[in-house]
Design a protein around this nucleic acid. Structure first.
Length: 351
DNA sequence: GAGGATAGATTCGAGCGCAC
DNA sequence: GTGCGCTCGAATCTATCCTC
């Protein structure tokens, strides 16, 4: 059997200074395949003595495995792409942290990218991620009919939607039970005595925006809240919350409480109420959704619906691994129960 | 059982032949 | 000598097939 000779090690061109398994193979006088097996601990293929020798040489040479090169053969990068719609939105920080931590515990590193606003760029983003051999996609808060989803489907990459589903059940997803959110909010507000409740809805292009709106309208009917009103915002942002609340005021519908579809919309509503000298909660009660960081520190601290972020992150990571292991399995949606966090922005309506 | 040979994906740069 | 187009090797590690 032919052996590599250590004296040939000087003939190999220098790469970037880091030793490769070829360098170790030359130093140990064995084939690169033997080094690979020894360092990966493949059982029954390398003698214990040979393995120890190779490990010693690798240690002495300061060898670091090249994961990119390894992914060429295995077609597995163990790199998950987490696609976030808005890195500036405080609600996504803890979510990404949790997912990254859960994935790392399962042997995957994360690549975090922001969703481009241009639909064409969204498609090319997925193509670029696929060409970098990412092992799958975690898409946070995708929109209905989002080009990201079409591109993800075409890429055949294992994909998990987080916080919002696709509606058509073609993707695995972990979502909040929005109907339960609305039920808890309306139970709280009607319990305080409110009968005139306005809903600042999220954009209809998002599954959460439309789901919370539909649930609000249906439950308002069931509770006989005949004067309830809905105004739709254009985005889940503070600015959109301001605009929607101004619209609400302009419409002239009576209300003693506002339920905003997320906390940023609630902050926008609070801006408008303050500008119009309407006291919260003395004249208008205000409820948000998501319990994003710092809403407990605003004045007044915001009553809001807390989504089960930690569990959502953990379940999303687990689903992601399931999709990689069983790409042909039927995609499932896991729905998590929210909790209403009552703070100081809600009170009984003024007499 | 232990270990060698090789293909695989992709890009860059070196080397070569040719024309002008 | 310069520019262009083309070919080929090197770089990375591992799964698979093959040999001893």
């Amino acid at each position: 059997m032919k052996r590599a000779s250590p004296e040939n090690s000087t003939s190999k061109p220098e790469s970037n200074g880091s030793p490769t398994i070829t360098d170790i193979a030359l130093a140990a006088g064995v084939n690169v395949a033997t080094v690979s097996r020894a360092l990966r601990g493949v059982p029954g293929k390398v003698s214990a003595r040979r393995r120890e020798e190779i490990e010693r040489i690798a240690r002495e040479m300061g060898y670091r495995p090249n994961a990119l090169a390894a992914s060429l053969r295995t077609r597995q990068s163990n790199l998950a792409a987490i696609i976030v719609p808005d890195l500036g939105n405080p609600v996504f920080g803890p979510m990404v942290q949790g997912i990254e931590r859960s994935l790392r515990a399962r042997g995957h590193l994360s690549l975090i990218v922001q969703t481009p606003s241009d639909p064409k760029e969204r498609e090319s983003l997925i193509v670029a991620l696929a060409s970098r051999q990412v092992s799958g996609l975690m898409i946070l808060a995708a929109e209905n009919h989002d080009p990201l989803l079409h591109a993800a489907r075409r890429s055949n990459l294992p994909t998990v939607l987080v916080n919002r589903g696709s509606g058509d059940r073609q993707f695995a997803a972990v979502v909040n039970d929005d109907r339960e959110s609305v039920r808890q909010v309306l139970e709280h507000l009607t319990g305080l005595g409110h009968r005139h409740i306005a809903h600042v809805a999220g954009p209809g292009t998002s599954s959460t925006g439309s789901a919370r709106r539909v649930a609000f309208e249906q439950m308002a009917r069931e509770l006989n809240l005949t004067t309830s009103t809905v105004v739709e915002s254009l985005a889940f942002t503070r600015e959109a919350g301001r605009a929607a609340t101004e619209q609400l005021m302009a419409d002239g519908a009576p209300f003693t409480a506002i339920f905003a579809a997320n906390d940023l919309l609630a902050l926008g509503a609070l801006d408008v109420l303050r500008a119009r000298k309407l006291a919260v909660p003395a004249q208008v009660s205000l409820v948000g959704h998501n319990d994003m960081p710092l809403v407990d520190l605003i004045n007044p601290p915001l009553t809001t619906v807390r989504i089960a972020l930690e569990e959502m992150s953990e379940q999303a990571a687990a689903l992601f691994i399931e999709r990689i292991d069983s790409p042909d399995a039927t995609p499932i949606t896991r729905m998590l129960l929210p909790t209403l966090v009552v703070r100081e922005s809600t009170a009984p309506p003024a007499a």
